[in-house]
């Protein structure tokens, strides 16, 4: 059969690399064909998710930040300083988390989606024209965020002025100064070229961009045991591939950015410098519990338990 798989990024970005590996695995081990539809070719992120829910697409990769409009609990991945900054701890969290393997599949199933896996895309960094070392430096800095209450709340708590702007206007907005900065993983700052119109990149260590692969549930349930296993194996292979690919991806992207624009500075905040930002977590968690849906508390508690387990 021909299976259709849409995702939110270009073919050579993290979701695209994941999708290509998945396709390669499926096609090498079966007669099925996987057609890939990168960013924008079948509509916006919400469009491709809906198309998967209605069964036109079989697979979709959507980040929980977007899924939050449908499954409010998924916004937990936007709470700052929840995910570990240590790579190995992060990876073992994604492998073994009870929240990801137990609770979220139930929540996604209610929306007709089979959650296949969640995986990290990379540490989120902040770009700006002014060096950032403390919340005071964020004073009057307009940071572009996605229109999500948790991100707005986070950046307010950091002391910045969160400013929603449609993605198409971000590059021009940074260039002319309507906005002063934005947040994204390093590979995305590189590929979207926004570093060209920014002076500083700051690593607050506050988050790792998380994303999820899912399938239409009726489609998945209707497959033979064999095909289901095929998909699980392909997902696992792509998951391991992407973790490996990520080793050093952030560093490589930052090097590419510095090579293309030598004047840019990349600053990693020290533990002491991060402390005041970290102190805002409780406030944002409260916002999450307020808007995170009926199982918000359960999800947050389980995430924390999983993270503790991953740390030991």
């Amino acid at each position: 059969d021909t299976w259709r798989y849409a995702f939110e990024e270009a073919l050579d970005e993290v979701q695209g690399v994941f999708a290509q590996k998945f396709k390669e695995e499926v096609e090498a081990n079966s007669d099925h064909e996987v057609q890939l539809f990168p960013f924008g070719t079948l509509g916006e992120s919400d469009n491709i998710l809906e198309q998967t829910q209605s069964g036109i697409l079989q697979f979709v990769n959507q980040s929980p930040g977007f899924t939050g409009a449908l499954i409010p609990e998924a916004q937990v991945f936007l709470v700052p300083y929840l995910l570990p900054e240590d790579e190995q701890q992060l990876y073992s969290f994604f492998r073994d988390s009870e929240a990801i393997n137990g609770i979220f599949p139930e929540l996604y199933a209610e929306q007709g989606l089979e959650l296949l896996t969640m995986y990290p895309e990379g540490e989120v960094m902040v770009t700006s024209n002014r060096p950032i070392a403390a919340p005071a430096d964020f004073d009057d800095v307009k940071v572009r965020v996605m229109t999500n209450p948790l991100l707005v709340s986070s950046y307010q708590a950091f002391g910045a002025t969160p400013t929603p702007l449609p993605w198409g206007e971000v590059y021009g907005g940074l260039q002319t100064g309507i906005i002063d900065g934005h947040e994204n993983p390093a590979f995305f700052i590189e590929s979207t070229r926004t570093f060209e119109v920014q002076e500083h990149i700051t690593r607050l260590g506050h988050n790792n961009f998380t994303t999820a692969l899912m399938a239409n549930k009726d489609f998945f349930d209707g497959l033979s045991e064999e095909d289901q296993q095929l998909i699980r194996n392909a997902t696992d292979a792509a998951f391991e591939h992407i973790l490996e690919y990520q080793q050093g991806l952030t560093e490589a992207s930052l090097e590419a950015i510095e090579a293309a624009k030598p004047s840019i500075t990349v600053t990693t905040l020290s533990e002491e410098e991060r402390a005041p930002f970290r102190a805002t977590t409780e406030q944002v968690e409260a916002t999450f519990l307020e808007i995170g849906g009926p199982r918000a508390q359960e999800v947050l508690d389980q995430m924390k338990a999983d993270l503790e387990a991953a740390g030991s």
Binding site: A10, D12, Y171, R193, E196
Partner: peptide
Amino acid sequence: GVVSGTSIS
């Protein structure tokens, strides 16, 4: 520029 990874400037 975004799709092809080319400098927008």
